[in-house]
Design a protein around this nucleic acid. Structure first.
Lengths: 136, 136
DNA sequence: TTTGTAAATGCGGCTTAGTTGCATTAAATT
DNA sequence: AATTTAATGCAACTAAGCCGCATTTACAAA
């Protein structure tokens, strides 16, 4: 759990509890995004539902993870690359497989044109279709 | 309610009840997208919650309206332009104001690049920021 | 116009995601 | 070891959305 320690130093206020370590480990072992529902199921023997929600909140505030809505309106979380509590860079699109529901972060630039008389602050782009595994 | 009649002819299976007419009227008077929550509130004296959900389902299946998730994961619906029950053309992005929550359909082309080893079937693009009214 | 039937509706209850308040536990600092 | 305060567990709550079933109603056929 070496990486976790490094990260926790940067986080500042967050205490390193067993629950925090367990959630952190999932995001370090899994590159794909995780739905809250799935995380609660994975962690149900180790901690309370509420604790999962609260840890995810704290992690997001500290820029360790970012959140977005999946195709069913459920909340998903994934590791951030290059974000911290002061600066969030989560403008990348996400992909969700319509067959297995898996969600991936895409390191892909999508050009958003200006919209007349509107000020665009953020974007939520979800691409849907078949993932690599489900195509075969 | 002339337009409604024309549309209902194309719909085929949908019966023209008072409830159907009431929902249809809202979408004809209002260009902006509507959240289900708001529609239920608007129509609470005229019909049951469940009926609103079911009418929206039917309308979507018949290509009269299309649905998508807003920034809070809630379901929104808006009129379709050029869709029917056989063919849906809803690839346009949506804009939601972070101050007043209003949602607009944008007639804007957004270029989605190919994603390696993935088959993209549909997209959900939500732009967030300040709408024209809230900027001033 | 009346009648038959299948679609549409109302109602009540249910499921599930997500939140809140409060008492208790435990991490970190001294 | 004592103290402080963040973190947790628990239970109850809210709200969106869905489902089954009895009843009503639109519409087509007689």
């Amino acid at each position: 759990m070496r990486l976790s320690c490094i990260k926790l130093v940067f986080m500042g206020i967050i205490r390193k509890t067993k629950s925090v370590a367990a959630v952190l480990q999932i995001f370090e072992e899994q590159e794909d995004a995780q739905s809250v529902v799935h995380l609660i199921e994975l962690l149900k023997d180790e901690m309370n539902r509420t604790t999962v929600y609260r840890i995810l909140d704290r992690f997001e505030k500290d820029g360790i993870i970012h959140s977005f809505n999946g195709k069913d309106g459920l909340r998903w979380y994934a590791k951030c690359h290059g974000c911290d509590s002061n600066h969030h860079v989560d403008a990348h699109p996400h992909f969700q497989c319509t067959e297995c529901d898996k969600v991936e972060c895409l390191s892909l630039e999508i050009e958003i044109p200006q919209v007349k008389n509107h000020k665009i602050d953020s974007t939520d782009i979800l691409l849907m279709g078949q993932c690599e595994a489900c195509r075969h």
